[in-house]
Amino acid sequence: MNLYRPPSLTTRCRDWMGQQWAVIGGVLVVVAIIVVAHRSAEVFRVTTIEEPGWEAFSRAHAVAEFGDDGYFVRAVQHGYNLFFYTEKYAWRFTRKRAGDGHNSCASCHTVEQLAYAFVNSDREDPALQRRVSFEERVMRCYAGQMDGFVPTRYDPAVRDLRILARMVARHLNLGEGALRDET
């Protein structure tokens, strides 16, 4: 008598599941962790968020001349966000939080001042006795006034402020070394 019977499909399936339960369980746990994480916390996305005031700012400074989107305008918009909402957009480089005083660039400066600082940068600073670039000024601001950390020179936290300053300088029709009281 032949005792061997080929296993049915369900048995084979169950056997396979029995062997692989650890792996299937592992995958399920991993997926569950990710789903729960995405449900419970703020998600990082590569988009430029439109903060209040951007609409008016971009109209006042004729940013639309460069278009509505595209790399340059997005950098300007990010620069705007950094300038007015520093604690939210440069959180890595400042210990200031939403409730603190003087927690953004706009607490001390205006964008016009930023533009004038830009066209007057790369000059010798009498106090420091060396030539200081615009990027270094921004880095010093993060380290000092913002009670934070030094970003690298290429970090968009620095670069986009420079691009914002360029944009505003263009709007004010500034040239290299322009003085404030220039008519």
Partner: peptide, 18 residues
């Protein structure tokens, strides 16, 4: 070189972003 280029733009009265 950047300093020299910036000086040229000042001397020729070139405006940012134009």
């Amino acid at each position: 070189v950047t300093a020299y280029s910036r000086f040229l733009s000042a001397a020729l009265d070139l405006r940012i972003g134009q």
